[in-house]
Amino acid sequence: LRGKKKEELLKQLDDLKVELSQLRVAKVTGGAASKLSKIRVVRKSIARVLTVINQ
């Protein structure tokens, strides 16, 4: 992550946020259990990207 440019990080952040919103919709509509663990992974990925951006 640290080797990427800021523009790439921001694009990745947008993609992750879109994916997270889709997973939340799937959870509300009764999605599979595998998607519940994926939510945690995506949230941590967002946190990692934000950490690198803010450093």
Results as ranks from 00 to 15, higher is better:
residue 23 L to D: 06
residue 12 Q to S: 10
residue 51 T to H: 08
residue 18 V to W: 09
residue 44 K to S: 08
residue 22 Q to V: 01
residue 27 K to P: 02
residue 17 K to T: 07
residue 41 V to T: 08
residue 55 Q to A: 04
residue 29 T to M: 15
residue 28 V to Q: 02
residue 22 Q to K: 09
residue 45 S to K: 14
residue 43 R to F: 12
residue 10 L to A: 04
residue 14 D to H: 11
residue 30 G to P: 06
residue 40 R to L: 12
residue 18 V to Y: 12
residue 33 A to T: 05
residue 44 K to Q: 10
residue 52 V to W: 12
residue 19 E to I: 15
residue 55 Q to H: 06
residue 42 V to G: 06
residue 49 V to N: 00
residue 1 L to A: 03
residue 2 R to T: 11
residue 11 K to F: 01
residue 5 K to T: 07
residue 1 L to S: 09
residue 55 Q to L: 08
residue 37 S to A: 13
residue 31 G to A: 12
residue 15 D to P: 01
residue 6 K to S: 05
residue 11 K to C: 00
residue 22 Q to E: 06
residue 48 R to Q: 07
residue 29 T to C: 15
residue 52 V to H: 06
residue 52 V to T: 10
residue 47 A to K: 09
residue 37 S to F: 14
residue 15 D to K: 14
residue 6 K to W: 13
residue 12 Q to P: 04
residue 43 R to S: 10
residue 40 R to N: 09
residue 3 G to M: 14
residue 38 K to R: 08
residue 42 V to M: 07
residue 46 I to P: 00
residue 50 L to A: 07
residue 9 L to H: 02
residue 51 T to M: 09
residue 18 V to C: 15
residue 22 Q to H: 08
residue 43 R to T: 12
residue 52 V to S: 11
residue 55 Q to P: 01
residue 42 V to S: 06
residue 49 V to H: 03
residue 34 S to T: 11
residue 5 K to C: 13
residue 46 I to Q: 00
residue 22 Q to Y: 01
residue 3 G to R: 08
residue 35 K to F: 15
residue 42 V to L: 08
residue 55 Q to K: 15
residue 54 N to S: 09
residue 49 V to P: 00
residue 15 D to Y: 11
residue 25 V to Y: 04
residue 33 A to M: 14
residue 26 A to S: 11
residue 17 K to P: 02
residue 44 K to C: 02
residue 54 N to I: 14
residue 44 K to M: 02
residue 53 I to N: 00
residue 5 K to I: 15
residue 5 K to N: 07
residue 35 K to L: 15
residue 32 A to N: 03
residue 14 D to T: 15
residue 36 L to S: 02
residue 53 I to Y: 00
residue 4 K to F: 14
residue 17 K to V: 10
residue 22 Q to L: 10
residue 31 G to T: 12
residue 38 K to N: 05
residue 45 S to I: 11
residue 52 V to G: 09
residue 17 K to L: 11
residue 21 S to F: 09
residue 30 G to H: 14
residue 23 L to P: 06
residue 51 T to L: 07
residue 51 T to D: 10
residue 51 T to P: 00
residue 49 V to G: 03
residue 36 L to I: 03
residue 31 G to K: 10
residue 35 K to S: 08
residue 1 L to M: 11
residue 35 K to R: 08
residue 8 E to Y: 13
residue 8 E to H: 08
residue 43 R to A: 08
residue 11 K to S: 03
residue 46 I to R: 00
residue 7 E to Y: 09
residue 6 K to I: 15
residue 33 A to R: 11
residue 21 S to P: 05
residue 24 R to L: 15
residue 47 A to T: 12
residue 23 L to M: 09
residue 28 V to H: 03
residue 49 V to D: 00
residue 13 L to K: 01
residue 39 I to E: 01
residue 42 V to N: 01
residue 13 L to I: 08
residue 43 R to V: 10
residue 23 L to F: 08
residue 48 R to D: 01
residue 18 V to I: 13
residue 9 L to K: 03
residue 12 Q to D: 08
residue 26 A to T: 09
residue 4 K to R: 05
residue 54 N to Q: 08
residue 29 T to L: 15
residue 53 I to H: 00
residue 8 E to P: 05
residue 47 A to L: 05
residue 32 A to D: 01
residue 19 E to M: 15
residue 9 L to P: 05
residue 14 D to R: 15
residue 45 S to P: 06
residue 46 I to Y: 00
residue 2 R to F: 15
residue 29 T to R: 01
residue 27 K to E: 09
residue 4 K to E: 02
residue 5 K to M: 15
residue 42 V to Q: 00
residue 51 T to Q: 11
residue 53 I to Q: 00
residue 33 A to L: 15
residue 22 Q to S: 06
residue 38 K to F: 06
residue 52 V to L: 09
residue 30 G to T: 12
residue 17 K to W: 12
residue 32 A to Q: 07
residue 36 L to N: 02
residue 51 T to W: 04
residue 27 K to N: 07
residue 9 L to C: 03
residue 49 V to T: 05
residue 30 G to R: 15
residue 44 K to G: 02
residue 38 K to P: 06
residue 48 R to C: 01
residue 16 L to K: 05
residue 46 I to F: 12
residue 55 Q to F: 01
residue 7 E to I: 12
residue 31 G to D: 09
residue 14 D to P: 05
residue 55 Q to N: 12
residue 35 K to V: 14
residue 53 I to E: 00
residue 17 K to S: 05
residue 47 A to F: 04
residue 31 G to F: 15
residue 33 A to I: 13
residue 15 D to G: 11
residue 18 V to F: 11
residue 53 I to F: 12
residue 20 L to P: 04
residue 3 G to P: 05
residue 29 T to G: 07
residue 21 S to C: 10
residue 17 K to C: 02
residue 15 D to T: 11
residue 6 K to F: 12
residue 41 V to R: 09
residue 54 N to V: 10
residue 9 L to I: 07
residue 20 L to G: 06
residue 25 V to N: 07
residue 2 R to V: 14
residue 33 A to W: 13
residue 36 L to A: 03
residue 5 K to L: 15
residue 2 R to Y: 09
residue 48 R to G: 05
residue 39 I to S: 01
residue 15 D to V: 11
residue 45 S to T: 08
residue 19 E to W: 15
residue 19 E to Q: 15
residue 16 L to E: 06
residue 25 V to F: 09
residue 31 G to H: 09
residue 42 V to F: 09
residue 6 K to R: 06
residue 4 K to V: 08
residue 28 V to K: 07
residue 31 G to E: 08
residue 28 V to W: 10
residue 8 E to M: 15
residue 54 N to A: 06
residue 29 T to K: 04
residue 10 L to Y: 05
residue 38 K to L: 07
residue 11 K to A: 04
residue 32 A to C: 13
residue 52 V to Q: 10
residue 40 R to V: 06
residue 48 R to A: 04
residue 49 V to I: 10
residue 25 V to G: 07
residue 16 L to C: 05
residue 50 L to S: 02
residue 3 G to T: 10
residue 35 K to G: 08
residue 21 S to R: 08
residue 5 K to A: 12
residue 41 V to N: 11
residue 14 D to S: 15
residue 32 A to S: 08
residue 11 K to Q: 02
residue 15 D to C: 14
residue 48 R to V: 00
residue 46 I to T: 00
residue 52 V to D: 05
residue 50 L to T: 02
residue 27 K to A: 09
residue 7 E to M: 15
residue 8 E to K: 15
residue 30 G to M: 15
residue 23 L to K: 10
residue 46 I to N: 00
residue 32 A to G: 03
residue 27 K to H: 04
residue 45 S to L: 11
residue 26 A to N: 05
residue 7 E to G: 10
residue 18 V to R: 15
residue 13 L to N: 03
residue 52 V to I: 11
residue 25 V to E: 09
residue 43 R to I: 09
residue 37 S to R: 13
residue 39 I to Q: 00
residue 28 V to A: 05
residue 51 T to N: 09
residue 7 E to F: 14
residue 42 V to H: 01
residue 1 L to F: 10
residue 16 L to V: 01
residue 45 S to V: 09
residue 4 K to H: 06
residue 23 L to V: 03
residue 46 I to C: 04
residue 10 L to I: 08
residue 16 L to P: 04
residue 50 L to W: 12
residue 46 I to W: 07
residue 35 K to M: 13
residue 32 A to W: 13
residue 38 K to Q: 04
residue 9 L to Y: 02
residue 19 E to Y: 15
residue 8 E to F: 11
residue 6 K to E: 01
residue 27 K to R: 09
residue 26 A to K: 12
residue 17 K to A: 05
residue 3 G to I: 12
residue 7 E to D: 08
residue 12 Q to I: 13
residue 23 L to Q: 07
residue 42 V to K: 00
residue 37 S to C: 13
residue 34 S to H: 11
residue 6 K to L: 13
residue 39 I to A: 04
residue 33 A to P: 01
residue 21 S to Q: 07
residue 33 A to C: 12
residue 17 K to Q: 03
residue 27 K to D: 00
residue 1 L to V: 04
residue 8 E to Q: 14
residue 11 K to W: 00
residue 42 V to P: 02
residue 4 K to C: 11
residue 38 K to E: 04
residue 10 L to R: 07
residue 33 A to D: 01
residue 6 K to G: 03
residue 48 R to F: 00
residue 15 D to F: 09
residue 10 L to P: 06
residue 18 V to M: 13
residue 4 K to D: 01
residue 53 I to V: 07
residue 26 A to Q: 05
residue 13 L to C: 00
residue 52 V to C: 13
residue 29 T to F: 12
residue 6 K to A: 07
residue 32 A to K: 03
residue 51 T to Y: 09
residue 27 K to Y: 02
residue 20 L to H: 01
residue 27 K to T: 03
residue 25 V to A: 06
residue 36 L to M: 07
residue 48 R to E: 01
residue 37 S to E: 06
residue 41 V to G: 12
residue 42 V to R: 00
residue 32 A to V: 13
residue 16 L to Y: 04
residue 20 L to E: 06
residue 3 G to Y: 07
residue 8 E to T: 13
residue 13 L to P: 03
residue 52 V to Y: 13
residue 37 S to V: 11
